[in-house]
Design a binder for these strands. Structure first.
Lengths: 411, 411
DNA sequence: CGAGGTTTGTCTTGTGAACGAACTTATCGC
DNA sequence: GCGATAAGTTCGTTCACAAGACAAACCTCG
């Protein structure tokens, strides 16, 4: 029951009766989750045995055995050859997520590239294709054709016997939760585009359940997976626009319609310059990519790397531009932290490489403006998700649905 | 497992095994919730029978019968005499929440009053005591002594055989989730006060589980109950300070530590007047009670009623003060709605009576600044919770815990 | 007034899932 | 080789719900 593109804001206590089967479903998911988590990105822990799972979950060994057998039968879990331990007793059979059997497809359409990537339950990248290009003010049908072709290539590259669990597409804009239309992607120049319908016309995506989600939300999901479990943070995705995603206890919160996180249009100064959205003094006009380049005396078309180089070389104008962007960002974030009380802010997108020149200003604003700062400073960190965070997050959404309802994969 | 003062942000999939008993617990809660909801504040629906509950929940009549019998035995549900219906067949036995058997205590310490109120599962007020006074810069120990005395009076007024499920105390400030200390209540002048420990010393609260929560969060909870189920809104509590609470799908979100909703310290203008919190241009300086009175040419000590009267009489200065407060509030709320995507804003506290003079400005700002406004206008409404919303919300928190885990009350 | 129909609530039987307690398997240490 | 130890399996028991028959209470209509 995960909402596409993010778990529901609050998992409203489900108003359904619990029957015998619910028990099994729950415990099946419990066991699978345990195996998955142990093999997670922070996977320094050795793979757990049935007995380990039993003690960790509180189920009996007998029950776990039965459940694990089901999961192995469904090719969601695999056994490793018993490891030689210098311990008395029968050696344990290590359990790991099955690799190459069930795959999630992550896709992304962004201003400068289109990409598709396939991940399996073990977190392995089974296939990846991308095309660079300029997709500002582009034609949705054409761009989605490019995407469909990439999907076709990725599907062809999957190992035999792999089952596709679905696809999630990351888009830089307002997306209705799940399959609803794309409302507005300012930087692509798209508005009210029924992306799912356009994709459905292509034979490459035939038989594939496609859901949509906001790019920042998905990147945040990848970030949540990369970091410690169950944390709360605000993920800031700096690009031409400035997106953000709210992660509460490890879950991405997408809002009523799925439109959360439009940090770029937070008002920094009511009398400031006019923004593309029509209002005045939006954060985007102070700390967006274009604004940043302009303030540093650069051309809007230049890559952010030039700022990195200039700042590194000690260019004063660039440093000043970055500091003032950091201040504006800090004000917006302070407002946010006062309202939502997260413990951490993660800088992603172009802010990740620029973080060394931004964090001081951001931290300063947070410290002076957040009411609770005296008790728990909101920490500022840098995204660890890497360049393909949104793509990974999208694939993870799909795999997450599998992990949450393994019973559906038993047949 | 409700978090005191609010459900956890996301009901993280519980990492516990489901056993046979979990089934019963779940279905017991399901049945009880159905009976409670049917008798809710929008309780125009007739009380449901066992058969009604069975069809509504999807359980069989046999299962429901067994569960209802348990609930009646625990005095959580009661039967009404069969109503005479002009219908064929055996007449149904109406089921209602038991009254006067299990009670939740709501309490509040605020700037100008201290109160305690007892609610039962049927939503009836069994007892209510309050003391008016000026508690700015007050001594916590003394004020809590007053509160304890009120608790004693309320307990004495309860019907014989009533079982107290606990107490929740509303405070106007940063409160650590649950029993953690009160960090900061600027307008009471309290800072780092261990309220629970101070209360525990009084014999009147002996044997009573006490939890703390933020006043606005609790008022929002009462508001959520008063309105339609499962909505998402931002509750704004205008007083001397400006609190807010985030309600997502009917659940109050309290944030990582429980400090969410400090709307008053959202920056409206970086170059604005200095605030008590140390920063510049906080919303509180534009739309807080004191600021509002000052802008209208009044004394800070006067009640808000004078504004109401003046505005009603057509006083231009008052109208201007209210409009500009509404603008500031609107900017802050627009920032918020862009970030969190709620569908409704509810004006509470002093904003409720003043709403006729505020909403236009607020709505205007929302319309021009919220990116998604073209697709789903955030509506602005007035709180329906009444004067004792926080008190009711506090009692509801306690009763909610009972409703969520009726199995604990079977003995 | 009584037979037939309808709806509610109870009771009985059967099934599925987990628990607990043996029991088997596999390795280590002496 | 043999006990000690731990992992995994099997079997009987327990518990909760589904399904459906049954009893009770009420209406309607001839």
């Amino acid at each position: 029951m995960t909402e596409p593109g993010g778990a529901p804001a609050t998992t409203a206590r489900r108003r359904v009766p619990a029957r015998q089967g619910s028990l099994r479903e729950h415990n099946l998911a419990l066991v699978l989750r345990h195996v998955l988590d142990a093999a997670g990105p922070a996977g320094d822990a050795p793979p757990p045995s049935r007995a380990d799972v039993a003690t960790a979950t509180g189920l009996t060994r007998g029950a776990v055995s039965a459940l694990v057998d089901l999961l192995i039968g469904a090719r969601l879990v695999a056994e490793l050859p018993p490891a030689a331990t210098a311990r008395a007793g029968r050696p344990a059979v290590p359990l790991v997520p099955a690799s190459g059997t069930v795959v999630g497809l992550g896709a992304e359409v962004n201003v400068d590239y289109v990409g598709v990537r396939a991940l399996d339950l073990a977190g392995r990248v089974l296939a990846h294709r991308e095309t660079r290009g300029d997709y500002r003010r582009s034609d949705p049908a054409r761009v989605l054709g490019v995407l469909a072709a990439l999907v076709g290539e990725v599907r062809a590259a999957l190992p035999a016997g792999a089952r596709l669990a679905g696809m999630c597409l990351a888009l830089p804009g307002l997306v209705d939760r799940g399959t609803g239309p794309l409302r507005l992607a300012p930087n692509l120049g798209w508005r009210d585009v029924d992306v799912v319908a356009l994709l459905a016309g292509h034979p490459e995506v035939d038989g594939l359940a496609v859901r949509l989600a906001n790019e920042a939300n998905l990147a945040a999901r990848a970030e949540a997976r990369a970091g410690a479990a169950g944390q709360s943070f605000l993920y800031v995705s700096g690009e031409v626009g400035i997106g953000a995603a709210i992660v509460l206890d490890g879950e991405v919160f997408a809002g009523r319609h799925g439109w959360s996180g439009e940090l770029g249009h937070t008002v920094v100064d009511q009398r400031g310059p006019r923004c593309t959205c029509g209002a005045r003094g939006c954060l985007e006009q102070y700390a967006g990519k274009d604004a940043l380049l302009r303030a540093a005396g650069r051309d809007v078309e230049e890559p952010v790397d030039v700022l990195l180089a200039a700042a590194g070389a000690g260019d004063e104008r660039t440093a000043r531009a970055l500091r003032s962007a950091g201040d504006a960002l800090g004000v917006a974030l302070a407002n946010f932290v006062n309202l939502v009380d997260v413990e951490r802010v993660v800088l992603g997108g172009i802010y990740a490489p620029l973080a060394p020149w931004l964090t001081d200003a951001v931290v300063g604003q947070l410290r002076s403006r957040v009411l609770a700062a005296a008790w728990a400073d909101a920490r500022v960190g840098v995204a660890a998700g890497g360049e393909h965070a949104a793509l990974d997050g999208a694939a993870l959404v799909v795999l997450r649905a599998v992990a949450d309802d393994p019973a559906a994969w038993l047949a």
